[in-house]
Amino acid sequence: MAKTVDPDYDKDGTDGETKVKIIGLGDSAVGKSKLVERFLMDGYKPQQLSTYALTLFNYKTQVNDSKVSVDFWDTAGQERFNNMHPSYYHQAHACILVFDATRKVTYKNLTNWLKELREYRPEIPVFCCCNKIDADPNVTKKVFGFPKKHNMPFYYVSASDGRNVVRMFKDCIKAAVSYKNNSTDFMDEIMRELENYDLESDRKDKDEVFDSGTDSLGNSSEKEENKKSGDDS
């Protein structure tokens, strides 16, 4: 099996482009892959990461005149095991939550997906979409409480006839890039503050600070910190 090295989204690409990672989440058979396929069309060329059950797709574009390289991560069926490998969330800059307009249970399960996502990525922008609107014309008249409650951009989409798919992905890419840029600035600020703090604190704290610096604010390393703090306190 071909080995692909895990991409690092904190570094810029060889071409100087900004690298962002966007993940899809939602139940089995809601159409996550079909949405990516509809957006990428001819560019739908999956790369398999050998280490984990997941698929990623690269897309090159421009946001505000700068080059952006987007990796869309798709679950490759991992959702069947009810939670995703932590690497799926690692360094993600935005997430698209998908449910199926024809299956209520997929809407109900959004709560669990969001909860798991927020354990790893408390702050990244999350987009929500109701897919398969082609299968039920009335669904677009319905109001859904979940995205409203969590203040998420919401789209009625169809991977089949294409409505709003490109629009959603483009918005999501912009949000991912802007999150990455801002959080980097923000992280610099935090890091400067923490460097001063470091002088007064012990080595252990310092290691943890640098841990979180490898990712953007509020991330999987926070989890580890939580675990460690159990030992400390």
Binding site: K108, R118, N138, K142, F144, G145, F146, R163, R167
Partner: peptide, 28 residues
């Protein structure tokens, strides 16, 4: 058309057909 954007108007007539009620949704 590659990029088809459509806006849908909700006049609040139809709720999510009970998708939001009988909620076992936990707060977080």
């Amino acid at each position: 058309q590659y990029d088809i954007s459509v806006d849908f108007e909700q006049n609040g007539e139809i709720e999510a057909a009970g998708w939001d009620s009988d909620s076992s949704e936990g707060e977080f």
